[in-house]
Simulated scan of single mutants.
Amino acid sequence: MTAAHATARRAQLFDSVVALFLAEGFAHLTLDDIAARLRCSKSTLYTLAASKDDLVRSAAVHFFTSAAVRVDAASDAATGTRERLAAYLGAVGEALAPASERFMTDLADFEPSRLVYERNTAIAAERVRGIIDDGVRAGDVRDVHAAFVADVAASVMVSIQSRALARRTGLDDAAAYRELATLLTAGIAR
């Protein structure tokens, strides 16, 4: 087996781990369960991470890193502040759509993965602020206090991430991000 083939196999296996976690969560799975479900050995899983905790954290990082690339591309492809904001938050919702309720609950309950989600939520809030700042400077949207609007967005994002919003409203994360996009884009309109 060539090094390139081994690297491709590891990447494919890691994608399969992420897909399994997204579909079914991870808290209830042991490494033996994961290996059996993916038809590989535990030693193969150990080539991805030193422990289940490391595998979960790495899977969360991979999921959010991959999502960030798609989300940023969607925002960058849009023109106009409201369109960029809607594209950005809509793409966040789309990126989270494959994540099952169980995955999101496990993510919130497991500190290492929760910290990854929190970090990505903070990055998203800062991106929202930047989009709004750019729009205010360009006169594309009404003169809002971008830091305030971004803080409101961040508060909602944290509520989404912590599962509190889902408990209060019944909205899954993807739907909540779409609603946030609608609310913010209407709120900054001229």
Score class of each variant (00 low, 15 high):
38 L>N: 03
77 A>L: 05
151 D>L: 07
53 D>H: 07
32 D>G: 04
88 Y>M: 04
25 G>F: 01
108 A>M: 13
132 I>G: 06
185 T>Q: 09
24 E>V: 02
150 A>R: 14
162 S>I: 08
128 V>R: 05
104 M>W: 07
96 L>W: 12
65 T>A: 14
181 A>P: 06
167 R>D: 04
172 D>Y: 01
17 V>A: 04
82 R>N: 08
175 A>F: 00
117 Y>F: 12
184 L>A: 09
24 E>W: 00
135 G>D: 12
76 D>Y: 02
166 A>M: 06
22 L>S: 02
83 E>C: 05
27 A>F: 00
26 F>K: 02
12 Q>R: 15
135 G>I: 12
127 R>L: 02
174 A>V: 03
29 L>A: 08
116 V>C: 03
79 T>K: 09
172 D>M: 03
11 A>N: 12
37 R>V: 02
62 H>Q: 15
144 V>S: 05
38 L>Y: 03
162 S>R: 15
11 A>C: 00
77 A>M: 09
6 A>C: 01
150 A>S: 13
149 V>I: 15
143 D>N: 11
43 S>G: 05
132 I>T: 12
181 A>Q: 10
139 G>L: 08
2 T>V: 02
143 D>T: 03
90 G>Y: 03
126 E>R: 15
24 E>K: 12
7 T>Q: 14
177 Y>S: 02
97 A>C: 03
168 R>Y: 02
137 R>Y: 01
122 A>R: 14
91 A>V: 09
151 D>R: 15
48 L>R: 02
3 A>R: 15
84 R>N: 10
93 G>C: 08
171 L>E: 02
39 R>H: 14
66 S>A: 14
122 A>C: 02
38 L>W: 03
159 S>M: 05
162 S>L: 06
45 L>H: 07
95 A>H: 11
99 A>G: 10
60 A>Q: 06
28 H>R: 13
48 L>Q: 08
15 D>Y: 01
91 A>N: 08
28 H>N: 06
177 Y>H: 07
133 D>M: 04
156 V>A: 12
45 L>S: 07
165 L>T: 09
